[in-house]
Design a protein around this nucleic acid. Structure first.
Lengths: 179, 179
DNA sequence: ACCCCACAGTTGAAGCGTCAAGTTGTTCCG
DNA sequence: CGGAACAACTTGACGCTTCAACTGTGGGGT
């Protein structure tokens, strides 16, 4: 097992500025390992099984859960924690592969809706169970039911710290007010 | 708070292939939010405070913890969970900024050692306390001591799943044996 | 000695995400 | 009703990571 020294500087400066406790250091070393490896593993799994990224899967998946299988770009972006710009690029790619189509909304022509095509939906049905298996295998099978609940609670509390109001995608273009 | 529907396909296929329980879904939705937002937050914090990425900080930090403030490239890569290629590029950049220097080892000329310069070390001393503050603020201050230990245990168990033997960087170039 | 192969690292192109700057379209408001 | 402000996107360039190929070195075998 490769040791992971994790952003904790061994040199203790003169005035210790509220350092981490030993227990916290242990927790942090292990946790940050998970933060790196788990997303990588999920992505690699997706690419191997389906030939596209975990994020693309997520986008298709979110679309599939809506009634019309379609969403405005900005809603899709915020649901997947992505910037609008990123979503635009991703949808362009997905469009190229024929899994999603774009269309401007009739009632508000600023809005572009991304819609899951039948091909995209079929793909998803094929791939989803395997992905769920992977998640279960990598995460939940390693944990007791109590730990699963602990994880939920811990995650919720940390999320609240990360994103108190709930607004996420680091704010997009905002025109500067000229004096 | 934006709801995050998380890779869980609403359409239940004919034969449910061992789905996730409701509790597991809750845990997964929250946890995957953390998986996305926390790395982003750490990186953003680092860029704002120091002008470089969290990963670069990590590299400098790991070097600073060694006796000689230097490591072979491959060791540095595996300690930071990076590929050798990535590390090579990163060290090139860090070298350009004057924080790290490269030198080929005398006893084994295949080996390149990356060494933290005095400037790099000074930088680290300046930046580290603020980073630790951020980690504590975003993670540990949100948790009770018991939860901190739970997080450590959960992380360790998941890590073992992700990386049973401990070998990580998804294997680099391996020359193909011709028949 | 010689050859083969594994090891350690580098390099360049391709892919994806971010950032800043556009383009339309809509609303607010005097 | 006319323009300023803003909202919803798109686009292009740039930076970082990965991937595949490449260079150079160090052991073994035979």
């Amino acid at each position: 097992m490769t040791l992971q020294l994790w952003g904790i500087l061994a040199v203790v400066t003169a005035e210790p500025p509220r350092w981490l406790t030993a227990a916290q250091q242990n927790a942090w070393i292990a946790f940050s390992g998970v933060l790196i490896k788990l997303p990588y593993a999920l992505d690699a799994d997706m690419r191997a099984k389906a030939g596209f990224s975990h994020f693309e899967y997520l986008v298709l998946s979110v679309l599939s859960e809506t009634a019309e299988r379609s969403l405005p770009m900005s809603r899709l972006a915020s649901l997947t924690n992505a910037s609008l710009s990123r979503m635009s690029h991703v949808v362009t790619r997905l469009e190229g592969k024929g899994w999603v189509s774009r269309s401007t909304s009739v009632d508000n022509r600023r809005i572009t809706r991304a819609t899951l095509t039948d091909a995209g939906f079929a793909l998803l049905v094929e791939v989803a169970p395997g992905h769920v298996d992977t998640v279960r295998h990598l995460v939940f099978d390693a944990l007791t039911p109590e730990q699963q609940e602990q994880l939920a609670a811990i995650s919720a509390q940390v999320l609240e710290r990360l994103d108190p109001g709930g607004e996420w995608p680091p704010h997009e273009t905002r025109r500067i007010a000229e004096p």
